[in-house]
């Protein structure tokens, strides 16, 4: 069994673009302090940032759980929001429902979920329309790029 070494939760508020990215920034600091290798940090933090931004852009609120074990970095982002009707479509690169305003801010390229999937060793997404979405991603400490 993997031994859990650190667990932290963060609240994310939907539409709060000023604070958007602070959770991912905090996770980068934690992992840097622990001394995890830079490519693992990079992958975990890209996942964290994309998932956090999706909560900010699409949901009302979300809870971000970060778990560090002696084997892996686990990230779970559960939101209360509109949910996703067609998960396959949402995971397709380029698909987006972002507004013009979000696009002006540099988001809405339909690359977030594909980026998350690409950087995770284990990836899972569950969604219920009208209730919310949960993204789980794992980066194994013994994995490379």
């Amino acid at each position: 069994m993997a031994e859990e070494l650190l667990r932290k939760t963060f609240e994310i508020r939907g539409r709060d673009f000023d604070k958007a990215g602070e959770t991912a920034g905090g996770i980068k600091e934690i992992l840097t302090e622990i001394g995890v290798g830079s490519s693992l940090i990079h992958r975990a933090v890209v996942i964290a940032f994309e998932a956090e931004m999706n909560v900010v852009m699409y949901a009302a609120e979300g809870t971000f759980t970060f778990v560090f074990t002696d084997e892996e970095i686990k990230l779970e982002i559960a939101d209360k929001g509109p949910g996703i009707e067609d998960l396959d479509l949402a995971l397709t690169e380029g698909f987006t429902t972002a507004t013009d305003k979000m696009r002006e801010m540099g988001f809405g390229f339909g690359m977030g979920l594909p980026n998350i999937k690409k950087n995770a060793d284990v990836f899972n997404i569950e969604s219920e329309v009208g209730a919310g979405t949960t993204v789980s991603a794992t980066v194994r400490l013994d994995s490379s790029a």
Partner: peptide
Amino acid sequence: ITGLTNVQSVRTADIAN
């Protein structure tokens, strides 16, 4: 190199190393 000037541009830069 970017034309986007919000806080997220720097956030993104930091995260992308």
